[in-house]
């Protein structure tokens, strides 16, 4: 058990190290000289050398990396050339909560729709319910999510005027306004997940319902709904969490796309506009933060899995 934890911890650190090297080299490899960019078009040789020295760019690369990593860990991520904003604040306090809210809300929608659909498809397999659910699942997966987003904006935002088409209101400031603004983006991002969750629920439940312990629950006189939703679904949770974990990358990618389509000021939007403005240090921060987020979410999924499966829990 402890060995597994240490192995996991080691892996995590290694991944974070790789992410940091990747985003550090990104800045090094990026076209353009950061000193020139910072000084603008008119500068003297003296001021150029001074800034180079101030930025530590005259040092060996490995030292530069060490400096950069130390600064990063301390939350000293620099200042945006364009908005003069503290990048740490921009990324962690402004963009990250938006992305997390969007992802969580989408996942919630996907679970609320996907699980019952999958259960119905499994219970009435090969009936029209199953066919419909499977079609929706495959459709939801195949349909490009930015396209769905545009259709939703078009129909429910512009056409019917039921929902706002862009912008973000934090649900913790104004819950209903927040939900209202998040509805279309969350449906867009969630739609892609619904099919996956429905499919996994269906196939896992079919497998679980064939297990002797389900028959044993029935033999104890448990009613049908409890057999499915308690004895069956409790065992479906584990594969479900596994798949959610495996698709985290897809979720983050989808979030970037959705944020751009709906102009939500999240991490995706931050990175995209930084790319357009060639603000390399913002891009770098975005890559680092996304990497850390991915690793942390993965650890959370792992912990959830350990918690859900009694066979993996430590004996008291």
């Amino acid at each position: 058990m402890w060995q597994a934890t240490f192995t996991k911890l080691g892996q995590t650190l290694l991944v974070l190290l790789l992410v940091s090297v990747a985003s550090f080299s990104f800045l090094k490899l990026a076209p353009g000289d950061p000193v020139t960019i910072m000084l603008g078009s008119d500068y003297s040789k003296a001021s150029y050398d001074q800034l180079t020295q101030e930025l530590g760019l005259d040092q060996p690369v490995i030292v530069q990396y060490g400096h950069w990593l130390a600064n990063f860990v301390q939350g000293d991520w620099g200042t945006s050339y364009i908005t003069n904003q503290n990048i740490f604040e921009l990324a962690v306090f402004q963009a990250l909560p938006v992305t997390l809210t969007l992802a969580a809300f989408s996942l919630l929608i996907a679970l609320v729709i996907g699980i019952p659909t999958g259960v119905m498809a499994a219970l009435y397999r090969n009936s029209w319910v199953d066919v419909l659910a499977t079609t929706l699942a495959i459709g939801g997966n195949a349909f490009p999510s930015f396209y769905l987003g545009i259709i939703l904006i078009w129909v429910f935002g512009v056409g019917l005027g039921w929902f706002p088409t862009l912008g973000f209101v934090a649900p913790w400031d104004d819950f209903w306004q927040g939900m209202w603004h998040l509805a279309l983006p969350a449906i867009t991002l969630g739609a892609w997940y619904v099919g996956l969750i429905a499919r996994i629920t269906r196939s896992s439940l079919l497998e679980v319902m064939g297990q002797p312990y389900i028959l044993a629950a029935k033999a104890r006189g448990e009613p049908g709904w409890r057999v499915v939703w308690v004895h069956g679904m409790r065992n479906v949770l584990m594969p479900l969490v596994t798949v959610i974990g495996l698709q985290l990358g897809g979720m983050l990618r989808g979030a970037v796309m959705t944020e751009v389509v709906f102009s939500l000021p999240g991490l995706g939007m931050m990175i995209t506009s930084a790319v357009l403005n060639r603000e390399y240090i913002v891009i770098q921060a975005g890559i680092m933060l996304t990497g850390v987020l991915f690793v942390v979410l993965n650890l959370m999924v792992d912990q959830t899995y350990q918690f859900l499966d009694p066979r993996l829990r430590r004996r008291k």
Binding site: Y213, A216, A219, R220, G221, N235, L308, P310, R311
Partner: peptide, 24 residues
């Protein structure tokens, strides 16, 4: 019938390892 199962009629399965729910 459900009122009889596990009540007036009990069933012991062949393979207890498989017949006990691993999550409870």
């Amino acid at each position: 019938f459900r009122r009889l199962r596990g009540n007036k009629i009990g069933l012991i399965f062949q393979d207890a390892t498989a017949a006990l729910n691993p999550c409870f």
